[in-house]
Structure formats: C-alpha cells, structure tokens
Design a protein around this nucleic acid. Sequence first.
DNA 1: CAGTATCCTTGCGGATACTG
DNA 2: CAGTATCCGCAAGGATACTG
Lengths: 135, 135
Amino acid sequence: MDTENIIKLSQAVCAALTDEDDGLKRDILAHTGNRWSLGVIHILGIAGQLRHAEIARRLKGVTQRMLTHTLRHLERDGLIERYDYQEKLPRVEYALTAQGQELLVNMFPLWTWILDHAETFRAARAKFDDAGKAI
Amino acid sequence: MDTENIIKLSQAVCAALTDEDDGLKRDILAHTGNRWSLGVIHILGIAGQLRHAEIARRLKGVTQRMLTHTLRHLERDGLIERYDYQEKLPRVEYALTAQGQELLVNMFPLWTWILDHAETFRAARAKFDDAGKAI
DNA sequence: CAGTATCCTTGCGGATACTG
DNA sequence: CAGTATCCGCAAGGATACTG
C-alpha cells in the first residue's frame, strides 16, 4: 500500500473510530500487551483444549502463579472457558470461547503487520537510542 | 459471521501466526494496552499535527508527566514524530508517522470489534464476578 | 510552553513453599 | 495436578513543584 492511500485510509479510520468505552477498550487490549495472554490464546487456538500443565509446558518460562493469573483474567473477559472435571486428581481444561476465537481473527492484521515490520521497529528504536534519547 | 466459520477461520489464523519476536510484538501491542497511547494516536490521526499542550487539552485527565512519557515511547517505536521548532518560547509539535498511520489502519478491525461487543464483555465480567470469582 | 525533578502508591511479574 | 499463600523487586502511573 502506498503512502497516499495510507494517509487517506488512516484518516477515514480515525473518523470512524469512537472514543467511547475507553476503559473497556483498554482492558481488552491490555490482554494483547501483557506478558502471557497472547501466548495462551495462540496455544489454545492451535491445540483446542488443554490442561493447565500442558499450557505451562508449551509456554516457555511461565510460572504456575502467572499462568493461573492470566487464565483467570482471560476467563473473566469471556475469552476462554474453564472446564473442571471434578476428578479426585484434579483435571481442569481450558479452551477458547467464540469470543476468544473472534479476538484472534480480528487481531490477525495487526499481528502480521507487526511481524512484517519487525526490522523497521528495531531500526527506529536503535536510531532513537543512539541519538541519546534512550528512555 | 457464524460460529462454524469463526472456528475454521481462527484455526487458519493460528496456523498462520508465528510466535517469533514475542518480545517485540508485545512491546508494540503494549501501546494499545496502556493508559494514554491509544488516545494520543487517535487524536493525532484526526488532527494531523498538534502541540504538546493541545494534546493535553484534548486528552481528558492526562498529566504533563504522563503525556511526555507516552509521547517519548511512541516516538521511540517510530509511531509518531516530534518536530521542535527551536523557538524562544518553546514550540514542539507531534504527528503520526507512516508507521503510526499503518498501526491505526491495522488496528481498525480489532478496535471496532471490541466496541461492537462492549455489552458482551461487560456481561461476561458481571457473570464471572457474580459467581464469586472476582479477581 | 514544554518539559525535568521528586516523591508516592499501586499493580505486574516472579520465586518459593504449601495444600486438597 | 491445579492451584493458594507469601514475599519481593521493579516499573507504571500519578501529584506537585520547579526550570530554560
């Protein structure tokens, strides 16, 4: 897409976007910014339904505490569902809800765009930091 | 979109997504989750180019400190550009870069989807909290 | 006007130990 | 196995005062 079109498109987009529900919007988007949520959603999107320990195994570096915490938050926002089988040795599985799947689908353009421009971002940061403005 | 299709689509999406660059991806997405970034981007998308004080006026509740901080971070990631006119009474203006405009465009589906489902999210939370699971 | 400089509170993310 | 319960360091976010 050329620059001309991006400018026009972004202006059209801005006009269409509203600032209502600013809190909620950020709350939902916060899932995409914090440490483990996106990984969980991605993994569940691929595997379908997994137990706590299975997710922990596939998510390198996550602690039990943070995984539980992340799962609770995703569950609270209706993005995943928790299935407790009430067995004596606990078995609990998690899966994306329809909402969670829609989040993934709607996040696709943004996600791929970021990955496609990884080098650009790194270059921008390097330039900024080299200019002595590092934060 | 019906449920059948969402499931298929989300699986296709998951397959297409990669987990590379997890840190960078989250760093960029963090802009969408934190308190003021999205507001700044939206305002600049509409207004084109604005001074520090102008942004502060339109962004209800932001403090000078946090606005400066937010602007630095957005600048570091190449999403906005800073124009310092070097005048005796300081005049500095900010505008979206091409990258920043692309971010907006690529975030459009996600943003509108969240706003369209605001009620669903609120209902999910209420149900969760009422079940006594509140975090 | 556009920032720094301080100080403060809150919550994130993590390490470790324990329980039904 | 799937969590709680603590304790901890650190950064986000904020209030207020000051500066070139």
